[in-house]
Simulated scan of single mutants.
Amino acid sequence: MARHIPLEGSPNVRDLGGYATADGRTLVEGRLYRAGSLNALTDDDLAAVTALKLATVVDFRTPGEIQGAGADRLPDGLTATLLPIGGGDLDQYYNAAFDPEERARLLEGGRNAEALVGINRGFVSSATEREQFAEALRLIADAESLPMLFHCTAGKDRTGWLSAILLTALGVDRETVTADYMLSNEYFLPGGEELLAKLAGSGLDIDADLFRPLIEQRPAYLEAAFAEADERFGSFDGFLHKGLDLDDDTLDALRAALLD
C-alpha cells in the first residue's frame, strides 16, 4: 500500500509506510514520507504537514531550483536540510521550449527519454550524487531524525530513486518498488498534463509531446539506475556498501528505525 496525502500545493506526497518485506516485516506508517517540493503549500496544506509532526525535511533541489520556485513552506521551528542533487534538475530541458536549437539538441530524436535514462544512471555513476543520497540514508537511520519527509521538485526522479534504494535495502521486492515509483504518474502527472495542454495551446510552434518523457514516470528510468548499480558495483548490495559507503550498522539501524 502507499498512503497518499493530498495537498493542493504539493500533489505527490506519500507515506512510505505499509510496504511488506521479504522477511515478513512491514514499514511503519508515519515515519517516512516522500514528496514533491513544499514551496507552494496553502494554509490548509501547511496545517496537514504540521500534523505529521516532522523532525526533518530533506530537500534535494539545487540552489537554482530553490531560487526560482521558492524555499519550502514549513511548520514553525523546522528548517529543511539541503542535499542538492543536480542530476534531477530538469530546468534546462523545460527552458528549451523557447529555443529551437536547444530543443533539437536536448529533446528531439528520442533524446528526451534518453535524457531521463542518463539522469537516472547518473544518480549512481556520479560520486557527488551518491554522496548526497547516502547522507539522506544516514539521516533516516538516525531515529532522532524521524519522522522525516524527503523531496525534490516533482517528487519523482531524485525522490523516486532514494525511495527505491531504501525499499530495496529493507527487503521490499522489485515489483513493489517499481509500483511505488510509478505512482507519481497518478499524483504528479495530471498537473504536468495541464502544463502540456497550455503549452500546446499557446500558439507557439512547439511540439508539447517532446516534454512528455520529462513529466511522466517510466519503468525504464528506474531500471537504468538499478542496471548502473549492478554494472558499476557488481550487485545492489555492492552498491549499498561500495557505492554509498553504508556499513552494516547503518543498514541495521535503517531496519530498526523503519520496520515493525
Rank of each mutant, 00 (worst) to 15 (best):
A69M: 10
F133M: 09
D99M: 14
D173R: 05
D230P: 07
Q217E: 15
S10H: 05
A115L: 10
P84C: 11
L210M: 12
I165H: 00
A35H: 03
L38D: 01
D252Y: 03
D209I: 00
A80H: 02
S163H: 03
N95R: 15
P190V: 06
D43H: 08
E108Q: 15
A127T: 08
E223M: 11
L189A: 13
T128L: 14
D59E: 08
I206K: 04
A97D: 04
Y181D: 01
F60T: 04
N95A: 13
F98A: 14
V172L: 05
L259H: 09
T128D: 14
K198T: 06
P6G: 04
V58P: 02
A220P: 07
Q132D: 07
A143T: 15
L240H: 08
F133D: 02
A48R: 15
L83I: 09
R34L: 10
N12S: 07
Y221G: 07
G201K: 06
Y181G: 00
A40H: 11
N12V: 03
I119N: 00
D237V: 08
L116R: 09
N120V: 00
A169C: 01
F98K: 06
L38K: 02
R111Y: 08
L222I: 01
D157S: 08
A154D: 07
R3I: 10
I5S: 08
L41G: 07
F236V: 05
E102I: 09
R14G: 01
R130H: 05
F133C: 03
I140N: 04
G70L: 06
Q67D: 14
G36A: 05
I85V: 15
I165K: 00
W161A: 02
G77F: 09
T62L: 03
I119D: 00
D252S: 14
G171Q: 10
L54M: 10
P75V: 09
A71F: 00
P100R: 08
I215Q: 10
G77A: 01
S184K: 06
S37Q: 13
S235R: 02
G18W: 12
A80G: 09
H151T: 06
I215R: 06
F123G: 00
P63M: 10
S184E: 07
S10T: 13
